[in-house]
């Protein structure tokens, strides 16, 4: 099977959906013919589909999402891009108060088939305003679906499902994933929301990981294997809806869980997963739940400090060993 980068897998999903459905259009800062997007996901699409369907916008995240919400409720299927996930804060009212609530407030008489794509994550030394992982904000807001693909295959399949669905989706990517290459089939496929993927089977401990942390966890698992420790790596692929049963089923088998996410530990995604396991699988735990997450600090600009706060293979390995 051919290999594609995560970036190209996303671009291909957008192109195929635009070819399939004329109501699909893109909007965002510098996504058009002059720049192709900050991470080049939309490169070449303006040339193919024209400036009307691949729209460059002013630097106003609130406007981007506001326009997209309006277009969505009038029958279009917009895919908005926010250049950095941190800047979604500027569009928070449109995302959390409008997109998330409209279907409910109008008693289901109108729908918001909207996708907001945005990258999170640290690792490229671009400081506190461009490096955060804020998945928990959206996971906390009823009415939004939250996708967190970690591989090119998942990215393409989930983005297609997001575009074809009738609910607002926060499609959260990770900057370090864009160049990651992996197998992607050429034929059309979709991946349903709410179905976790076991990225690696194992028996000694379950590791729940999302986005780029899936890759760091798989690297850590290789190291652990050399010492005879077998871990199971579960990638939820979507945080809302969450495949709780996959997590619980795995914990029932291994009796141990390490939760690895890049967001801050306090009230983060890891807190929610830990709570679910404690509530629904406590009697199967053979060791305390372990969380590997970012300390409650802004992401430092200094490369050594940034490296220090972001979880890596070593911290994951240490956490696993602490509970074995």
């Amino acid at each position: 099977m051919r290999e594609l980068t995560y970036r190209d897998a996303l671009g291909e999903a957008l192109r195929e959906e635009m070819l399939r459905d004329k109501t699909v259009f893109l909007l965002g800062e510098d996504i058009g013919r002059y720049w192709g997007g900050a991470f080049k996901v939309t490169k070449g699409l303006a040339e193919e589909f024209g400036d009307e369907r691949v729209r460059d916008t002013p630097i106003s995240e609130s406007t981007i999402v506001g326009v997209a919400v309006g277009a969505a409720i009038t029958g279009m299927r917009p895919v908005a891009e926010i250049m950095f996930g941190d800047l979604s804060a500027l569009a928070m009212d449109q995302i959390c108060n409008q997109a998330a609530k409209i279907c409910y407030m109008f008693g289901g008489q109108t729908k918001v088939p909207l996708v907001v794509r945005t990258p999170f994550g640290a690792g490229v030394n671009i400081a506190s305003h461009h490096s955060q992982s804020l998945e928990a904000w959206f996971m906390h807001t009823p009415g939004l679906l939250v996708a967190v693909p970690s591989t090119p295959f998942d990215a393409k399949g989930l983005l297609k499902t997001a575009i074809r669905g009738n609910n607002p989706v926060m499609f959260l990517e990770h900057k370090l994933l864009y160049p990651v290459e992996d197998k992607v089939p050429e034929e059309d496929y979709t991946i349903p929301f709410g179905v976790a993927d076991v990225k690696l089977e194992g028996k000694d401990a379950t590791i729940f990981a999302t986005l780029y942390m899936v890759h760091k966890t798989l690297a850590a698992a290789q190291e652990l294997r050399k010492e005879g420790i077998s871990v199971e790596v579960i990638d939820p692929r979507t945080l809302v809806p969450l495949d709780k049963q996959a997590i619980i089923k795995s914990v029932k088998r291994t009796g141990r869980i390490v939760i690895v996410t890049e967001d801050c530990k306090t009230a983060g995604v890891s807190a929610e997963i830990a709570a679910i396991v404690a509530e629904e699988a406590l009697d199967y735990l053979d060791a305390p739940i372990k969380r590997v997450a970012e300390p409650d600090t802004p992401i430092p600009f200094s490369p050594p400090l940034e490296k220090f706060v972001i979880p890596d293979e070593k911290t994951i390995i240490k956490a696993v060993k602490e509970i074995l």
């Binding site: 009796g255 406590l282 009697d283 199967y284 735990l285 053979d286 060791a287």
Partner: peptide, 11 residues
């Protein structure tokens, strides 16, 4: 008696 035991062991 507060035995140091995991929930899975206790179950």
């Amino acid at each position: 008696e507060r035995v140091l035991a995991s929930p899975a062991a206790k179950r």
